[in-house]
């Protein structure tokens, strides 16, 4: 159903570190779940439109008016960041330093 190689690939896509023990475990467990999901192949869906939302709603718009942000909430949200400087959230460098 799903191979160890695919499990490794998916883990990389999902930014999950997995060790070889987990690789084995996930391969087995995901295969058994996918096996159950195979049931869906019994249904002819060739003439069926997909549903992504329970009701037929269109985009919901509002007037394009600037709303005053709640400064207090922004400060609290910034406070939650593990690393920050002034009003910025700090991350590790993305580019390597040139020699």
């Amino acid at each position: 159903m799903i191979t160890k190689k695919e499990v490794q690939h998916v883990a990389k896509l999902a930014r999950l570190n997995i060790n070889s023990q987990e690789e084995e475990k996930f391969t087995k467990e995901l295969s058994s779940i996918l096996q159950y999901i195979e049931k869906l192949k019994e249904i002819d869906t060739s003439k069926v439109e997909p549903t992504s939302h329970p009701f037929d709603v269109k985009n919901v718009m509002r007037e394009d008016i600037v709303q005053q942000p709640d400064i207090e909430v922004i400060q609290r949200m910034l406070k939650a960041a593990p690393a920050r400087e002034k009003t910025y959230i700090k991350v590790k460098s993305v580019f390597k330093r040139s020699e």
């Binding site: 999901i37 869906l40 869906t45 069926v48 439109e49 997909p50 549903t51 992504s52 329970p54």
Partner: peptide, 14 residues
């Protein structure tokens, strides 16, 4: 094979 098919069966559930 998976996501799109599931969305279609979701239509049938509705």
């Amino acid at each position: 094979a998976y996501y799109l098919r599931a969305q279609k069966v979701r239509t049938l559930v509705r």
